[in-house]
Every structure is written in structure tokens, then in C-alpha cells.
Design a protein around this nucleic acid. Structure first.
Lengths: 404, 404
DNA sequence: CCGAATTTGTTATTTCGCTAAACTTATAGG
DNA sequence: CCTATAAGTTTAGCGAAATAACAAATTCGG
């Protein structure tokens, strides 16, 4: 039973023109989200619209090259075989981009979800010069775009940033791990020639990663979860009813600065006792007596080998995470916690400790069936989410892409 | 900029019949929420619908006795005077009810928002027998209903419970301060004769109180806040985009069990160091060396008189509240914190301390304009919210009330 | 192999709610 | 008293979906 909005504030009048657009988006969404290709009749059944109406809508989408027909499939049943409809390949694409602490990424995806291009460059961007970073990023963008077939229409782009971002156009308010403050990245991105024709927007990295994860979990019916992404910092995002919940400005999810020890360690954010200082990557490595620059896989291997220090470090992180997550789940009532970033490979060593604390500290635990899982998407989650976000807007309102 | 849903999961096909119903609800909502009565032309302007369409919808609502016309008002301007439309009085009503630790309440409100009846009975219900309590409540309900004019149609009822409730029909999973667990209150309520014709549902007390507060703050544009209700326990609720955000099961908002001191005091919930143990009513009174049963006004007076112990107790509560609220706001990104229950009268002594901690611990504080305010509604907030919740459903979909 | 049954997709035709535009009503202002 | 202005109503028409009939392509039973 999803939570209903008690007051439809955003609701506006539905006019006949909107009606058609709405249903057009609905049909396209159904076609694209279907696990196995769906037919016109199937859509009619799922939506309650008549086959005639669906046919008309589907034909428009096909004419606009947003949808294509597959050969009819013999279903072993009586009756005329259905014509499967799928998202068109290579006609409309979106670009997802990411600036993170240790890499830049550009990814181009078409409506069918296939990645047409992807490029990732590793480097260290702590305390970096924003202008240079974005110059490099727009260069990568131009390279990638140049390699695409010219027939492809570009729907737009979305840039993931590990920090507080004013959606949708910036500025970046604060990206502590990059050392950025009040940076107008959109303008910087567009200062490079060859980026003039694409419209880009910004969002938080963890938010977009959670979105990618939500797209994967939604078909399985897992619609509400708290996503926690462990990196140098700890990001997070809320997903409710299958959609990311950004809050007032899109700044929800900053679980990394939950207080887990009021009299504890000083955090980079200026506060004291933040989760990040107990379960962030640096804290983990330090507590396991490993080098801060070592890859997380080293810690994973050590733990798998039974290394006492590694296991103790992970147990400590689990305690801190459990406390912070218990607070969060008491406040939000999700049915799932998803561990992303470095926590995904470490999950086997973290989940038991976290779940123990959740059981004792979450008021609704006996009834909510709360679970903790590693993330399904391990690499490039934010990139995937960013490109998906742009396409999702097209899918929800395809009317702008109907005419050639 | 309200957070968009990235995926319209709940969206279903809009058919022509739905369209009319949707717009009917929209018009009714506009009429009822208007600060000053709105005219047909005003609605047309606000919605983008034509005057003709609005007229047709309004006439239906008038015929159904959901809306009535006021005498035309001379506006000092040229042109035909507008006919103000208002919610009909005394034709359709809803009942809000509450079982709380120290009182029972029943309130009947009509569409216009005027309370037709209200009755509150004080008593101590800690460790009470659910059957007896609900017998008394349904008796009160019957008394109150008997006093109403017979022409009034009853839309339904909503019962507020201070605990974890399975919406909408129960059972009550856990109400720690009542000492209830897995109680089927709906059936108990209906076991009394004379309650057969009303359909009731359940919700959490703080959730409904927050809803009432949201109805008041919405017109002022304050659309997202965290509501904290101090009583013996500490309840809470989230409001985003002007609507209460219940989460997966409606169990969001349990801020009372946020950990503010991991090595601290034992809480009734079985956990350790919960906010409730540092800022709940009992903790406050104890820390101020007052009697646990004393009314909160005594503490307020002592603080106003400059009593050192009282001020110190309040400062300590503010610290604990500030820490818990900082965690919450980092996670949710609201623009407001609203202090309800016993915190409302104590706000002058709590707000400075809370705000100081929020400024230092909330990552987005420099940009979010976060503020802390006392609640506008001081008494019977949950009762008000409960009755409003029922009416709100009618307003959003009045189609069931059109035929006689 | 053939016809009945079944399911898909298409093609008129109808229905129903909204729009547009003209019209009526009721005021203000010169 | 006439004009301007705005609110509300009426009428004709449009557009999107519903309805219903039909065509197409299969299975299945004889």
C-alpha cells in the first residue's frame, strides 16, 4: 500500500490535449519497462484503454521512431500472434556524465537502454580546479559524441556531482571531497565549443546512483529503500514508491553526517562524531591498519582471509552504520537498505552487524520485514542513473519528440 | 522547486470519465482551500479551464450540496460582480477521533471546516484495557452523532492512535504509552451498536497532527517541514510538498528513538540512548526537579521566572533535540522544523539551542534557510487532522457524493 | 484439409468532456 | 444613457477515447 498524497498540490487541470500526452507517455513507459516485450493488446489490458486507443498511440510512437515492432511471436495459443513492441534502438539517446573524486565518466545510452558509448578516465580530483576538470569533461563529451552515428537525436544530458547541487542548473553549492564551493559547472561545461547543442542538468551522485538501483529493483517489487553509498565520503538517497525522493531542494540523503558519537571525532564538515568518520573509506582503512590509497578489494581479501584487524574494522563500521541506519529507518519507514559503493563488496561482513542493530533499534522492525542488501549495480551506478534520468523525462512526456 | 517523481508508477491511464472526476475534485479543492471565496471565473483563471467548463463542474457540485453560492460581491471594479463559491455548510461531515494517553476525543467537522461538535474526555489510559477504552469512545461517538441534524451525510471517520498503526484498518501494532499491542480497534469500535453505518480508518497521532499543521502552513507557502510532537513520548511526521509523507507502511517520523547518546540511558523501547530519554516530558520534568505529573505549564512558568534548573533542563533537551533534528534534516531536506505538543509553549526556550546545533550540523544549513517554529495549532491537532483527512478524500474525489 | 474458436489489430461510428465564440447579465464610469 | 468591462451562460464544434464491427492470423478439433 503506497503512501497516498493527501493533497494533490501539484495537480493541475487535465485538458484534452494533456490527456493524449499523458496516455502517450504511459504507453511508452509500459513498453520500455516491460520485462518481455509487450503487445498492443497487452498494453490495453494493463492500462484499461481499448485496443483501438492503444493502437493509435502506439502508431504515433512508431512513426516518431521511439518504438519499433518485432516479428510476431508464436505463442502456442489460439489466436493471431501478438506483435511485440520495444523501444527503438539508436534513434534517441541521452548522455550521463559524472565528476567524482577519482574519475570522470561519460556514457551515452539510447531509449532501449543499450550503452552506445562509455568512457571513464581515472584521476585524482581532490582539491581540483573546477575549470580544468570541466574542460576535460566537455572534451570527453565531444569525443564520445563525435563517434555516434549522425542520425541519433540527443535528448540531453545529466551530470552527477558528489555534493550539494542546486537542481537542475546549478550552481554546485558544496562538494567537500572535490573541494568545490559555489561552482557554476553548467556554464563551465558549455564554454567548450561543440557542447552548445546539448542541454545538461545536474544532480547529486548518490541520488542518481540510487535511481539506477531503483530501476533495477522496481521490477522485483522492491519499491522503497534507503541507498547508502560508501566512498571516501558517505552519500545516500531515499527511494519511495520506486522513485528517488529528493526533498525540498534535492538535498536529501546526507546520512554520512549523522551523529553516531556526540563526543567523538572531528569531521571535515566541521561537526563532530559524524558517521563518515567511523565508516567512511579512510576510517575503514585506517582502522584496519591499511594504506588509505589501497583499493577496497584489499580490505575485502583480508577480511575473506580472516584477518582479525580487517574484521574488527568492518565490525566497527557496521556498528556505526547500524546506528545511523536505525535512526534513518525510524524516521523514514522503508522496507530495504541497499549498500552501494565500497559497501557492496564488503556487504557479507557488514550486513549481520547492521541487521542486529536494526532489529534492536528500529521500532517497527518486528513488522516491517526490513532487510539489508548489497547493491545490484556495482560499477558506474551514478553514470547509469544520470543517463536514465534524462531518458525518463522523455518517456514521461514524449510529445516533444513526435515531429521529426 | 518541488521534488519530481522520476517515475510515475502510480500513474494509470486517464480515461474520459476519470478526466471529469479529476477536474471536479480539482475545482472543489480550489473552492475549499481558497483564502477568500473564489468565483467561477477565478477558478477558470487558476486552472486554465474555460469558464464554461468550470461553470458546468461548479453547477454539479452545487447540485450535490457540496458547494454553495454567496451573494455577489461588489468589487469596485467595472463588470458583473462575481458570485463567490464556498464549501456547503452542514451537508456533509466527517468525524475525527483520538485515543491518547490522557484523553479521548471526538470531533465532527463539515466541508466548510466548521466544527459541528467536539467532545474531549480526560482520563489516564496508560496500561489501559483496549476494549473498555473503545467502548467508551464509541459511546461518545454515538452521543455526538445523535446531536447532529439528521440531514447531514457522514463521509466517514478517522481515529488517531499514539503508536504504530497498520493503515487504514488496523490492527494497532504497538502503542507503547497505552501499553497496547496488536489490537483490532476498528472491530472493537464497531462492536457498539449505532456505529454500524460509519466507516472508520486509523492513523498515527503525530501523522494526523502534522497534517492539521500542514493545512495551516500550506497557504503561507510553507510546504515542507519536520513535525516533532513532544508528549510523554516523542512523535513526529514528515511533510513534503504540503502533504504528509508516511513511507512504506505509514510508520515514518519516529524521531523519538533516534540515538543521541549511544552509551546512555535505557529506553522503554528496549534500546539505549533514545531522544525520548533526554527530551521527553518525563525526562524534562525530572531534570528540572519537578513532579512527573505536573502540567507542562509549570515548567514554562518556572523557565519564564528564570529558574536555573528549569532553564538547564530545557537547554539539555534542546541539545538532544538539536542533534536528533540535525540527523533528520540531513536525511530529509525540509525547510522547516515545527515544534508541537509540549514543545510549542516551550519553544522560546528551545529554539535558540536547537538552531545553534542545526547550523553547525546540517550540511546544507547555509543555503537551505532552515528555521525552527512552534506549531500553530496547540490543542487537538490530531483530532483536527483526523477529521480533515477524511474530508480531504471526499474533496479529491467527490464523484461518490454527487447522486443524492 | 477444413471450419470453428480465439486472439490481435484495424476501421468506422458514437460518445462525452472540453474549447471557442457569441451572447446575456450586471456592474463602473463618463 | 452609452460605453467599457467582467462574470456567467449558451451553442456549436472538436478531439480523444469508447464502442462495435470487421479483418487477419493463428490453434484445435474433426
Amino acid at each position: 500500500m503506497p503512501s497516498r498524497r493527501s493533497t494533490p498540490l501539484g495537480a493541475s487541470a487535465i485538458r484534452q490535449a494533456n490527456l493524449r500526452e499523458h496516455n502517450l507517455g504511459l504507453v511508452l513507459r509500459l513498453i520500455i519497462d516491460a520485462r518481455v516485450p509487450i503487445s498492443r493488446a497487452g498494453i490495453a489490458h494493463a492500462t484499461g484503454l481499448t485496443r483501438a486507443t492503444v493502437s493509435s498511440l502506439a502508431d504515433r510512437l512508431i512513426a516518431a521512431h521511439l518504438v519499433s515492432e518485432l516479428p510476431p511471436v508464436m505463442s502456442q495459443r489460439a489466436g493471431r500472434p501478438a506483435v511485440p513492441l520495444v523501444a527503438a534502438q539508436g534513434t534517441l539517446a541521452a548522455v550521463g556524465m559524472e565528476v567524482n573524486v577519482d574519475y570522470l565518466g561519460v556514457r551515452v545510452v539510447d531509449l532501449s537502454g543499450t550503452a552506445l558509448e562509455q568512457r571513464v578516465e581515472a584521476a585524482d580530483f581532490r582539491g581540483s580546479e573546477p575549470g580544468r576538470v570541466l574542460d576535460r569533461l566537455s572534451q570527453m563529451y565531444c569525443d564520445v559524441i563525435g563517434r555516434l552515428p549522425s542520425a541519433i537525436r540527443m535528448a540531453g544530458g545529466c551530470l552527477a556531482i558528489p555534493g550539494l547541487v542546486d537542481r537542475p542548473q546549478g550552481p554546485v553549492r558544496m562538494a567537500p571531497n572535490l573541494g568545490w564551493r559555489d561552482v557554476d559547472v553548467v556554464t563551465m561545461f558549455h564554454s567548450h565549443p561543440g557542447t552548445a547543442d546539448v542541454q545538461i542538468r545536474l544532480d547529486n551522485e548518490a541520488t542518481l546512483a540510487a535511481r539506477a538501483e531503483a530501476d533495477v529493483l522496481r521490477p522485483a517489487g522492491r519499491l522503497s529503500f534507503l541507498y547508502v553509498s560508501g566512498e571516501v565520503g558517505i552519500g545516500g538517497a531515499l527511494v519511495v514508491d520506486g522513485a528517488v525522493f529528493g526533498g525540498r531542494h534535492g538535498w536529501s540523503g546526507e546520512i554520512g553526517h549523522t551523529v553516531v558519537d556526540p563526543g567523538g571525532r572531528q569531521c571535515r564538515c566541521g561537526s563532530i562524531g559524524c558517521l563518515e568518520q567511523y565508516a567512511g573509506k579512510d576510517a575503514l582503512m585506517r582502522s584496519a591498519s591499511m594504506d588509505l590509497d589501497q583499493p577496497i578489494r584489499d580490505l575485502q581479501r583480508a577480511a575473506e582471509a580472516g584477518d582479525i584487524e580487517a574484521l574488527a574494522a568492518l565490525a566497527g563500521a557496521a556498528r556505526a552504520l547500524g546506528t545511523a541506519l536505525a535512526n534513518a529507518v525510524n524516521l523514514i519507514d522503508v522496507e530495504d537498505v541497499v549498500l552501494g559503493g565500497i559497501y557492496a563488496p564488503l556487504a557479507p561482513f557488514l550486513v549481520p552487524g547492521i541487521e542486529e542493530i536494526l532489529r534492536s533499534r528500529v521500532l517497527a522492525a518486528p513488522w516491517s520485514g526490513l532487510q539489508v542488501h548489497p547493491a545490484t549495480i556495482r560499477d558506474d551506478a551514478a553514470l547509469i542513473g544520470a543517463s536514465a534520468a534524462v531518458l525518463s523525462d522523455v518517456i514521461d512526456d514524449p510529445s516533444g519528440w513526435l515531429a521529426n
